[in-house]
Design a binder for these strands. Structure first.
Length: 508
RNA sequence: GCCCCCAUCGUCUAGGGGUUAGGACACGGGCCUUUCAAGCCCGCGGCCGGGGUUCGAAUCCCCGUGGGGGCACCA
């Protein structure tokens, strides 16, 4: 055990159900999860669904499904409950109103009756005057009794934070240090919307406090309102968690953030920033975890391969980096390769099954794939490469391009002769085990005075229908004698036709 | 327009007052080789700019510049 005994961390991933889990969210979830597991604490899933306009019904299920796929199981959440529930903010609505009123009563917040129209006009004016858009405090000084009466009378209203007009506030981010902002630059943010639901600012502070969150690891997009959150904690008199703002992800060029447009372009290229896509494209969760873990965090100056277990052991907040990181899909492919090769072949065979089914090989089982896996484990990147590379094993027949049966430097007639000789060698053998077929076929190469690549290349195309395939002798062994011989005979026939056509008198 | 954050090879990063500035991906070359991979070896390539502090700055400070985020009854 390590000599320092960190206190158990209670951390959370708190997505808004307005879209699908993307790598930015997944990374935040991963780091939170790692901290919880490393310290023996709890990892909480909380759904921040207070924006009813942008609500996407299937989003919550997507988060849960893909978080689990990544191996990031939570201890408390909407589906499994816990001592600090409920874990969906819309189910906690009454709570926020109560805390908002508490702030009003203590003079830290006020009711505001301004209409959206008035606010729009105000902002327009400020934009014209090149002033920062900010609430003008119109309702800030309405006597509390009067305001309460209007609220009681049912007048539409919101609750705003009464940001101090003077002075400044200093908040602390673990990896950035102190951040000081003048209060005049902080707006009177809305805490409670007219629909009675809280904004992020109120909800996050109330929930993190009530749920005893010890560390907040969230995206850097919250840096701007971080000072407001500091004010809220102080107004409530609550102890703040440790704050860490995670660096943002940039597009692969490093120039600019990833737009919706960029995301669509990635998908055309079999890449994506959505976890569900990566899963569908045949990436391993191990590879995705490894990849995102290293965008904004490092262990040392050389170690890059990590399993989730490794990460739980080695993760540390101190080694988080504050600077933005460009996503690099080539690096994802690299990690994918490392993890594919690290997999137990039988495990890989099982994971491959759904990809064969999807490719149309619906009868394929893990047992069928076990002899094939060793032939392709170093040759595939994403899992859906496998059926493309090895579909010929499961086809009744293959359809080689006759031209590809002719090795470089040979005429069709010469190729035909090679095919006949190779077929004769194979027919004379008792089986097509690699150890059986390789020596006599190599002998044939010598006898014919050709290069191995010429003869084996011809057989490869004949037997697999492809110019690129797994190693020839092992492939023939898996294919079996009947299919090997049938396909060789087919190749001979194809070459006979080609040779005949080749030697036929040419029209002028 | 205002506020905040960030800055080492193309990209992810290590390091950090005196180093041949280290690793990885990508890229180029070689080895291996029945194709394609994998593996191994070699190479290319970097401290954003300007001031200051200092015997000495890539490292500390300031100012620029560049990039990012925010300035909603969205999160």
């Amino acid at each position: 055990m390590s000599q320092s005994q960190p206190r158990p961390a209670r951390v959370r991933f708190a997505p808004s159900p307005t879209g699908y889990l993307h790598i930015g969210g997944a990374r935040a979830a991963l780091y939170n999860f790692l901290l919880a597991r490393q310290t023996g604490g709890q990892f909480i899933l909380r759904i921040e669904d207070t924006d009813r306009k942008r609500f996407v019904p299937e989003a919550e299920a997507d988060f849960m499904e893909n978080l689990r796929w990544l191996g990031l199981e939570w201890d408390e959440g909407p589906d499994k409950g816990g001592p600090y529930g409920p874990y969906r903010q819309t189910e906690r609505a009454a709570l926020y109103r109560q805390y908002a009123e508490q702030l009003v009563d203590r003079g830290h917040a006020y009711y505001c009756f301004c209409t959206p129209e008035r606010l729009a006009k105000l902002r327009e004016e400020q934009r014209r005057k090149k002033l920062p858009p900010r609430y003008d405090g119109h309702c800030r000084h309405i006597p509390l009794e009067e305001a309460k009466a209007r609220v009681a009378a049912g007048e539409p209203h919101v609750v705003r934070f009464k940001t101090p007009r003077e002075g400044s506030i200093t908040v602390h981010d673990l990896i950035r240090g102190d951040i000081t902002v003048a209060n005049k630059d902080i707006d009177d943010y809305i805490l409670l919307k007219s629909d009675g639901l809280p904004t992020y600012h109120l909800a996050v502070v109330v929930d993190d406090h009530l749920m005893r969150i010890t560390h907040v690891l969230r995206g850097a997009e919250w840096l701007g309102t971080f000072p407001l959150h500091g004010h809220l904690y102080r107004a409530f008199g609550w102890e703040e968690p440790v704050w860490v703002h995670l660096s943002t992800f940039l597009k692969p060029s490093g120039k600019g953030k990833i737009s919706k447009r960029d995301a669509d372009i990635f998908r055309k290229d079999h890449k994506s920033v959505l976890v569900k896509d990566l899963r569908e494209f045949g990436y391993l969760p191990e590879a995705v975890d490894n990849w995102i873990a290293l965008m904004g965090w490092s262990y040392d100056d050389r170690t890059e391969f990590f399993t989730l277990e490794d990460l739980i052991e080695k993760f540390s907040l101190e080694r988080l980096k504050p600077s933005p990181a460009a996503v690099n899909f080539k690096k994802l492919d690299h990690f994918q390769g490392l993890h594919v090769r690290a997999l137990d072949p039988r495990d890989l065979a099982q994971r491959l099954v759904p990809f064969y089914h999807r490719a149309g090989y619906t009868q394929v089982t893990a047992a069928d794939l076990e002899p094939i896996v060793p032939l392709i484990q170093t040759r595939i990147t994403t899992l859906d490469d496998a059926p493309r590379l090895t579909g010929f094993f499961f086809e009744d027949e293959v359809h080689p391009d006759p031209a590809e049966l002719v090795p470089k430097g040979l005429t069709p007639a010469q190729a035909l002769e090679v095919a006949r000789r190779a077929l004769a060698v194979l027919e004379a053998l008792p089986d097509v085990k690699a150890a059986t077929t390789e020596p006599p076929l190599r002998a044939l190469v010598d006898e014919l005075g050709l290069h191995a690549r010429q003869v084996f290349g011809l057989i490869r195309v004949a037997v697999t229908g492809q110019r690129v395939s797994p190693p020839l002798f092992e492939s023939m062994e898996v294919l079996g004698r009947d299919k090997v011989l049938a396909r060789m005979r087919q190749a001979v026939a194809l070459l006979e036709a080609l040779a005949a056509q080749d030697t036929a008198p040419q029209g002028d």
